[in-house]
């Protein structure tokens, strides 16, 4: 068999391609368009939904009438003119004017409300700022008083110091009383090698070596 087709490879490959292959299978198991009717549905007869002849008649009549009326309306010039007129009124005529007026009034009212609100908030704010300023002033005054007090105590302290120093300066050593002071110091040697109790009394004393 193969020797018969030797030399014609293209024909052989075409022969080997399966015939009814599905190119793109969207859903697995679904039938393609050309597949025959299923065996189980072989005897099925399609019956359209039943229609009531009376009702059908009435509906048809009514639809005809409606269609007639609508067509008449759509094509009558008067009606068209009325429509146009109404639209014109809506857009530029008295109605528009009225609407503009209403909008202006609403705007005015809103602006008035806005101003009133601003006024109210302004009053609140001013009251708050006033209060804050007063508190600040109070604080500053207190600080000034306390600073003054501090300065006063400081000056007093320094004055006390100066007075004390002046009092002590009488016993300072100068060239004039130097010899006398040296004599005094040598005559009264001090000894700080002692222990004291809580009341400050000397408890124990170390003898000088």
């Amino acid at each position: 068999m193969f020797h018969a087709v030797r030399g014609n490879v293209a024909a052989v490959s075409r022969l080997l391609i399966p015939r009814n292959r599905v190119l793109v299978e969207a859903v697995r198991g679904r039938k393609s368009r050309s597949d025959p009717k299923a065996k189980s549905k072989a005897g099925r007869i399609k019956v359209p939904p039943p229609v009531d002849p009376v009702e059908m008649l009435v509906l048809k009549e009514r639809f005809t009438q409606y269609d007639l009326i609508m067509r008449a309306l759509r094509h009558r010039a008067e009606f068209k003119e009325e429509l146009l007129w109404r639209r014109y009124q809506e857009e530029v005529g008295t109605l528009a004017e009225e609407r503009a007026k209403q909008e202006a009034e609403e705007h005015q009212a809103l602006m008035a409300w806005n101003d009133a609100e601003n006024q109210r908030l302004r009053k609140l704010r001013e009251a708050r700022i006033q209060k804050e300023l007063e508190q600040k002033e109070l604080r500053r005054a207190e600080a000034a008083i306390s600073r003054e007090n501090q300065m006063e105590t400081f000056v007093k302290e320094k004055e006390q110091e100066v007075l004390k120093l002046q009092e002590e300066a009488k016993n300072f050593i100068t060239l004039e009383n130097l010899d006398q002071q040296i004599e005094e110091a040598l005559d009264n040697p001090k000894n700080y090698n002692f222990a004291i109790d809580k009341e400050g009394r000397v408890v124990k004393r170390t003898v000088l070596q």
Binding site: F172, I173, Q181, A185, P189, K190, L208
Partner: peptide, 9 residues
């Protein structure tokens, strides 16, 4: 300024 002179022996 000399304030004091002490002898400790």
């Amino acid at each position: 300024v000399v304030r004091e002179l002490q002898s400790l022996g």
